[in-house]
Design a protein around this nucleic acid. Sequence first.
DNA 1: TAACGATGTATCGGGCCGATACATCGTCCG
DNA 2: CGGACGATGTATCGGCCCGATACATCGTTA
Lengths: 218, 218
Amino acid sequence: MLDLAILGLLHESPMHGYELRKQLSTKLGAIRAAISYGSLYPTLRRLQTAGWITEAGETPADDADVPPLTSRRGRVVYKITAEGKERFQDLLAQVGPEAYEDAAFGVHFAFFSRTEVDIRLRILEGRRRKVEERREGFREVLQRAAERLDAYTLELQRHGLDAADREVRWLEELIANERSGRTPPPRGSEGELRPPTPRSTDSAPPLTARPGPDDSAE
Amino acid sequence: MLDLAILGLLHESPMHGYELRKQLSTKLGAIRAAISYGSLYPTLRRLQTAGWITEAGETPADDADVPPLTSRRGRVVYKITAEGKERFQDLLAQVGPEAYEDAAFGVHFAFFSRTEVDIRLRILEGRRRKVEERREGFREVLQRAAERLDAYTLELQRHGLDAADREVRWLEELIANERSGRTPPPRGSEGELRPPTPRSTDSAPPLTARPGPDDSAE
DNA sequence: TAACGATGTATCGGGCCGATACATCGTCCG
DNA sequence: CGGACGATGTATCGGCCCGATACATCGTTA
């Protein structure tokens, strides 16, 4: 899961660990909290061993007189290899039930611009089914066991029901949009394809509900 | 975190592992996915070693003639000890920054009926602050870096922004309610907005946004 | 009678997190 | 001038928790 995210980012441009973490945090911020270095560095080493990425020696811009004082800085820049790109495509297209999980779904979604439209649809629909099941679970609890639970637990259930319901509707919009052929920018061109932007300053944007964690998730 | 949840459930009544897992799933369903046995059983053993819980031997209802054929079934019922109850209260009142995390917040919330009002308020406010920060993060990304991100990533950000925004409002309602002295969550006051069946078959219940998980991004 | 799904306990490998350590750099402030 | 601080940067370690797996019993269904 981290593999996919890291390969995806390095596919866009070479980077060192720290930068990688920052970009992951903003790109996947809606999905999972900032990824820990305790995950990041071991994963980088694993990817390197597997041959998906390599170190790309920082190109020190070479200065002839200053160097002796501070020994070469420890900045390690990674870049993706040809095998890494293949691996990335494999992972992208690998649509198992895990891809509908909160975090994994988010990562797949974040790289949708690099994904074929039919894969996108399969993932969105799988995710929808999963969230629908979740939602029905909440409904059942609320209808059948309401009197056996305390007020706060019930509130939590309503909370969950509403979130699931919203996410289903969000997914439905996205699915409809994909089917209509009007898909967001294919790649490389990030000119504004969304002139209307109906939600910029709005207090209550249309879509949503939270995949994360979720949660952890988690 | 699991400790708190397990002690809380066993505080209500003795139970065996399987049952514990089921109850946790419904009680915390909005927060985290079903807890794994790979977490549950080791945790139970840890709690037992610490003396917070004990085995309460299943009271086999004793039959004199049937036993020899099948050796005693392996059902292990656990019950909380006096020390366990103390521990539970300690954990409940322990309001560190961790308690504002998605999963931990959910667990604390689920046991709010056993928590003092002032603790409840502190947790709700801490959580609110945390989610507000999250929300501002999304806003900044959307305002300052919108043109550097692809359409799907942007959609994810809006998603997150909306969810965070909703959760903040949810928390605000809960906080206001706590302060008003009307301890348990309100319910019923929002009825007039949509007269027939507030949320049973309705597509859009009132509150929410999702605390759980992580995310997870699994 | 065989298959299946629910109930039930348990372990193992591995992913990921939080805490921590350490080092450099620029800036702010006394 | 010097020290504190925060951002940048790499890295490890202990531990929580998950998913997969194994195994066993029971009742229902085919």
